[in-house]
């Protein structure tokens, strides 16, 4: 290391949900982070785990910021650009709190498990009790710390619950290797064995998937 190293993000500033994701990823692996923002996670994975980590980001200002910090990030759209990667190009493909905002979540997930051996997906849980309660009590779209934008301006066009996500994995033949629910601060919920309770009390969920026996879907 020389005095010319680029400025590095400090690991202690890592967002809690990104730290949970980083824990799921084995050292020295190839990782693609979709919607990588300023590249915090890929920097962490390179610096602490020696991963070949790359990113895609749709916000050009974030892309510029990341590349200016020496991180391999390209401008791209999860709905469009994943199709341009070859099969099995990565060990892990990460989609952090973005699945609910893409146009075609099912296709994006299929692409992730085509180009990567594992998909690491986190999303805010629309099945949380407070969301259910607000909708039941007020009869209007819920507004919580997690779901904090009005329905007409939210980028989250495809909200789902933890149980919805389990169902999709079953329908498309993905194996859930690991999963956990957490509160907004990233503290793990204790309902590891009980998806129905996790679906009620977890504010966000994190899944590690791999392809089922039928191999790559759609090829």
């Amino acid at each position: 290391m020389t005095t010319h190293d680029p400025v590095r993000f400090v690991a202690k500033n890592l967002r809690v949900d990104l730290r949970l994701i980083a824990e799921m990823i084995a050292p020295g692996t190839r990782v693609l982070d979709i919607g990588c923002g300023d590249g915090t996670l890929i920097d962490e994975l390179f610096t602490t785990k020696g991963c070949d980590a790359r990113g895609i980001e749709i916000d050009m200002a974030e892309v510029t910021h990341a590349v200016a910090h020496g991180l391999p990030v390209m401008h791209g759209d999860a709905d469009i650009d994943l199709a341009h990667y070859p099969d099995n190009a990565f060990d892990y493909v990460v989609l952090s709190r973005t699945l609910q905002a893409v146009e075609r979540p099912r296709e994006v997930l299929a692409q992730m498990l085509r180009i990567g051996a594992h998909a690491v997906v986190s999303f805010p849980n629309f099945g949380h009790w407070l969301v259910r309660w607000q909708l039941l009590r007020r009869g209007r779209m819920p507004m919580t710390a997690t779901w904090d934008r009005m329905w007409y301006e939210t980028p989250n066009i495809h909200p789902c619950t933890i149980q919805d996500f389990f169902d999709l994995c079953t329908a498309d033949g993905y194996v859930v290797e690991r999963w956990l629910a957490a509160d907004e601060a990233g503290r793990r919920s204790p309902w590891r064995r009980f998806p129905r309770l996790a679906n009620l009390f977890g504010e966000q969920a994190l899944f590690v998937l791999r392809r089922g026996a039928q191999g790559i879907v759609g090829t």
Binding site: D52, R54, P72, M74, H75, Y85
Partner: peptide, 13 residues
């Protein structure tokens, strides 16, 4: 990307 290369890509405003 199709070649599996390490690529950064940015459009400057």
């Amino acid at each position: 990307n199709r070649a599996g290369a390490n690529v950064s890509f940015v459009e400057i405003g």
